[in-house]
Amino acid sequence: MAYPQVAEHGAQERLAVNRTGLWLFILSESFLFGAALSSRYYLQGVERPPELNQLLGLGITLVLLTSSLTAYRAERAAVHGHLKGLTRNLAATIGLGLLFLVGVVIEWYEAFHYFPPSTAYGTVFLTTTGLHGFHVLTGVIALTFILLLGRDGRFTGGNFWPVEGAVKYWHFVDVAWVFIYPSLYLVR
């Protein structure tokens, strides 16, 4: 490259634009979850059924928080050019994401039994957890793509944006759950 400083400046600029675009996307997504949560309070107030499985709610919350740690570790490994750290932590994040989804399936099984969709709480619960679960699923798919593509080290040689983007999305899914969990399970 004849002008390395110009190329470096261009790459930094592109990274900044990518980050801003992703944050705007995250902001727009947060309105979607905000609407789902506000419908919970509009339709049901702060009431919640006593049959809610508190242990399961806490369990899947801890699983998702742990997956945020492994996702962070994967992203930092990519930034520092540590391929093994990247692949191991991405695999762990995907595994924890799948475990969370298993928890959601159990959650749904119980919900259909105790508060079916014909009830106000059932509608809110299934819509919100379903919307969130779909985001977890898309996050798992994105992270799986990153893992498969990144095994050859293409994301640990300075081009870490794809990892950073997918991981930021994953953290957003976690932040959304941080508000969903107390709204569905704890508030009174």
Partner: peptide
């Protein structure tokens, strides 16, 4: 508590 959780994730992880 929820806002503190969200801030920790947004600031340190994101």
């Amino acid at each position: 508590v929820n806002l503190a959780d969200a801030w920790l994730i947004a600031y340190y992880f994101m």
